[in-house]
Nucleic acid binder design. Sequence first.
DNA 1: CGGCATCCATTTTGATACTG
DNA 2: CAGTATCAAAATGGATGCCG
Lengths: 219, 219
Amino acid sequence: MTNEQRSYNQYCPLARTLDILGARWTLLIVRELLSGPKRFKDLQEALVGIGTNLLSTRLKEMESNDLVFKSKLPPPGVAAVYELTEHGRKLDETLLSMMRWGIPLLEKAKKANEHVRPHWLLYGMLSTFNPSLAQGISETYEFNVGGEVFHMRIHEGQVTGDMSKGHNPDLIWVSDSEHFMALAFGLTTPQKAFEDGAVKTGNVEMIERMLRIFDPVQC
Amino acid sequence: MTNEQRSYNQYCPLARTLDILGARWTLLIVRELLSGPKRFKDLQEALVGIGTNLLSTRLKEMESNDLVFKSKLPPPGVAAVYELTEHGRKLDETLLSMMRWGIPLLEKAKKANEHVRPHWLLYGMLSTFNPSLAQGISETYEFNVGGEVFHMRIHEGQVTGDMSKGHNPDLIWVSDSEHFMALAFGLTTPQKAFEDGAVKTGNVEMIERMLRIFDPVQC
DNA sequence: CGGCATCCATTTTGATACTG
DNA sequence: CAGTATCAAAATGGATGCCG
């Protein structure tokens, strides 16, 4: 058959987790599926370099490990999609933790020829959410970065976010990835971003508050 | 030379993290070093199957990625040891999160010929710490499992733990791995464990409280 | 075209032998 | 003990072919 599933063979919660998640690409597939069901093609395009055969193999492994399942979207657009199971969705806490650790590695600079997708950055920002600074705030932010729409809603000290429009967002941000990163990493000021027209709805104070609640620079 | 460092080449906090941690064995090495500096031999013995060449390669990669550094223990016992850097120690949150996800995978049953080290289980337990149930409790538990000594100290809603004896522990538990797991997974009762003599210091109520604060069954 | 399966060159890993 | 050297086996990347 395909994979002999090389196991660490250790009775340890970490080792058992790595037996399932440790193979190359697996966690990046989970990352992609965190923002909703995706077609084979979508995954292939987001995961530059994976090769169709390996993607296919991984998805099957993940299916048999109860991380994803295959379903069909209802019309219009009847397409087979891959979706996270409930078990798989429970990995969000772990992935956010890994993202938080990885943010300083971005070093405020994108290497030449490195790939970027706006939702990677938006998830990174989400991972820096600071509940204690969000107490008493109830706001919705909508980001349109490089054409990808994402929103975050802060309510009762918690945040939720996904790739969709927000309901009556208090802040609407529109820019490309570069300008978004510049703001997130403090390379530009909210005032300048506002003057540049990146803010379609909302004001400078709102961006400043948002940046306090999500602060990658502190990571 | 040796390693061409296969990178995902993505400007994403998760991908950058996986570029550093994604290789086989790396996270298990971090796990071992979380409980203090270790010699090459100690690591090799804990990581059954790694092969000395690969362990050597990994440690060098981890050194150049600022995860570990090599140091010498002071006399007596002047030995070269590997130690986590501060950067490396920041991975504890992520590893605990992965352990928490992995606990249900243990399924209350150890497979035949699977390896176990008591500190793996103790870290697993540590990962299930529930701060809200620890409010107002100030206690120290000492575990001697299969000859390995570990302690956890609960204070001001937080827990700390490592592989050493506790200071004036309120509870002292002594058993082998099997009996410890049976307690942790609810396959035996605190009362029975007490009658079996696993509790050297402390009483049944203390075990019950401890099991509420650390509850793998809830994971 | 979406969703794979096959083939093959290149890397990575595992196992063992060997050295300071 | 602390590694290095060597080599076979497995996993991966990339191209290509197939089939509804």
